[in-house]
Nucleic acid binder design. Sequence first.
DNA 1: CATGAATGAGAATTCATTCAT
DNA 2: TATGAATGAATTCTCATTCAT
Lengths: 211, 211, 211, 211
Amino acid sequence: MEERLADNRGRIVLATRRLIAEGGFREAQMAAVAAAAGLSTGAIYRYFPSKAELFVEVLTEAVRHEIVILNAIAAGPEDATTRLRLAVESFAQRALEGRHLAYAFIAEPVDPEVEAARLHSRRAFGDVFKAILRDGIAGGEFPDQDIDVGAACIVGAFTEALVRPVAPTAKAVADRQRLVSAISSFCVRAITGAATAARRRAPLRPRSARR
Amino acid sequence: MEERLADNRGRIVLATRRLIAEGGFREAQMAAVAAAAGLSTGAIYRYFPSKAELFVEVLTEAVRHEIVILNAIAAGPEDATTRLRLAVESFAQRALEGRHLAYAFIAEPVDPEVEAARLHSRRAFGDVFKAILRDGIAGGEFPDQDIDVGAACIVGAFTEALVRPVAPTAKAVADRQRLVSAISSFCVRAITGAATAARRRAPLRPRSARR
Amino acid sequence: MEERLADNRGRIVLATRRLIAEGGFREAQMAAVAAAAGLSTGAIYRYFPSKAELFVEVLTEAVRHEIVILNAIAAGPEDATTRLRLAVESFAQRALEGRHLAYAFIAEPVDPEVEAARLHSRRAFGDVFKAILRDGIAGGEFPDQDIDVGAACIVGAFTEALVRPVAPTAKAVADRQRLVSAISSFCVRAITGAATAARRRAPLRPRSARR
Amino acid sequence: MEERLADNRGRIVLATRRLIAEGGFREAQMAAVAAAAGLSTGAIYRYFPSKAELFVEVLTEAVRHEIVILNAIAAGPEDATTRLRLAVESFAQRALEGRHLAYAFIAEPVDPEVEAARLHSRRAFGDVFKAILRDGIAGGEFPDQDIDVGAACIVGAFTEALVRPVAPTAKAVADRQRLVSAISSFCVRAITGAATAARRRAPLRPRSARR
DNA sequence: CATGAATGAGAATTCATTCAT
DNA sequence: TATGAATGAATTCTCATTCAT
């Protein structure tokens, strides 16, 4: 029964995430969520007191997962530049899978209650990048700079570059790779101030070799 | 009479913009717009056939204004780096006045009709920056790079950095200046790959001394 | 000035009739009427206290005109059968010009106030036919029958046969003639109980010649 | 549960029919329908996607019922004349129960979507009579004639004769019988061209005595 | 007198939430 | 517990009528 409870709860969260990812908040109505989860609308209210709280959990959950991955990268052994690039690319890669979901992270929430969660998410993402930036500056790898702004800009840059709703899928993997690496190049350049790192994808060459 | 017409139309647009800026699309309901404009709901429909079209006009109008300014900067006599910086700072400065409005530009729109206008807006902003990037690359000032991604990242970067809705005003002008210049530094660095601009944090040096 | 007044009044009635004829009551909104009459909405209220009263006048006016013509036929020198046929054909002919107007006569009125006028119209039409029927029965030309029902049925029969909205215009005059005479044959047969009068269009042949 | 569903759906249709019968389309507003059905407005939308579709169903339903009965008569063993009379009388009899509903069949519909259903209904009624006419002509019972016009005229004749809205009920059953048979006499005469039926006004003679 | 902008009472529809079964 | 039908407040849009100019 405990099992079942947890099971249903998870199904609801999953269904909601999928609906948001596919059609934004607008499509994630309680009836649709219930249908997608294979439950009744009433059942949802046994697990979540309101739509807002459900959405909050979905966001929080999705972000938590993302943060774990990013933190692992941020705590890695590579130099800050590499970690920055890896983090951006890792995030970007997954965001491409679910544009609408990523979109929802920055979208005007239907409900003000959800806003708080959204803000928290962004801050959390920012924190990961801040950590890397701090490292890089401390180690002399990055020029001194406003890490709050830098982190926010990174999040914003790839969000915007990835998320704008273009043709639904279609684009080949090749294009996707190119896009992701163009974005990460942008971010690395922005932080390091080193012009060419991005185009040549060799991550560990010494700085002197760059132009 | 003509006067009156134009006057009311303007009042409606203004009221709508204000409501969106304050509370997002959600708060800008027709009744609220009417009240804010000092009119009846019916009166709005004399000027706009639907809520969607009103929103579209508000967006379009705000963007048009912005684009004119940005284009003037983009077409200026300065080198591309300077123009980039000026454009970003100019935009950022004004975006700070109306966070929520800027927010609405990237928000998930209530109405699919509005979405078209939103996309167009973003493209328009992007185009301005693309022009500068093209110039700079052609003139050897910027390293070769994907200008589509670059333009999108710029828009995203400062949108994110500016727009996160904190307490409505609060921050002093000094902070604002610093914020704006940190953002523009980020963007300039990202495009030029030159770390210079950011390191010197002296916010008040005369413009001529920069470059 | 008196001139002008009457002029405007007429223009309004005319415009309303035209609008009803073209699109039914639904299209005849006060703003549309005003535009069609080349006046302001306010001006209409100088001549008519309400939309309902305007509609009533339009109906009454249109019917008065019709009744005058029909009464002339009813009072003619021909035998009752001929007059009946002529009346039906005359009415039918003109109804074909403005189906929607004829339609409006039998349509559920938008406003209950208009209903009274509509009823009056139908009664008036019925009265014309009743007169003819009475004549014909009195003169032994028609079998004895319920003239109230007969008159109503005649009005209904050709209304239905003519008014059902088929392809807008198109049909040639030949078809129109055939239609009108099929209807009048139906009505004449219904009243006289004589089977073949209609097909052979010779109106005055002696009864013995018929089958 | 299934029970409940069907029950409510039926209640809604019933309530709508009653409201239309009493006050026409105009009175059958969704709120009124809901109230009459003992439900909330929202509940109606569980069963019908829109007001138009509800109206269409009400019409269709009423017509289907009618058509079944009429077709049974049209397919009966009697001669065409008798079947014609029976069909008209049967229809007329029931139309007298719900004048306004019959009225709505010929009324200018509020919504263009409903118009299609209305047209279909009339055509369906017409078809029944066309079948009888065809039979009668083929069997030499009726003179040759335009059956399209004939069918339309029949429908129109008794619609008009029955439907003119007088005081809601009032008239005694005796009057009703006489009215119905006057109408059917009119129609039979119109089609057969035989004056017999109408002249003998004795309403209560046994059916076998008629021809 | 004429104008036509403004009014505002409706009417249809949506959807989160509740609650009897 | 689960169900899903029912609720009803909220929202957009319409159009006859009024009234300041």
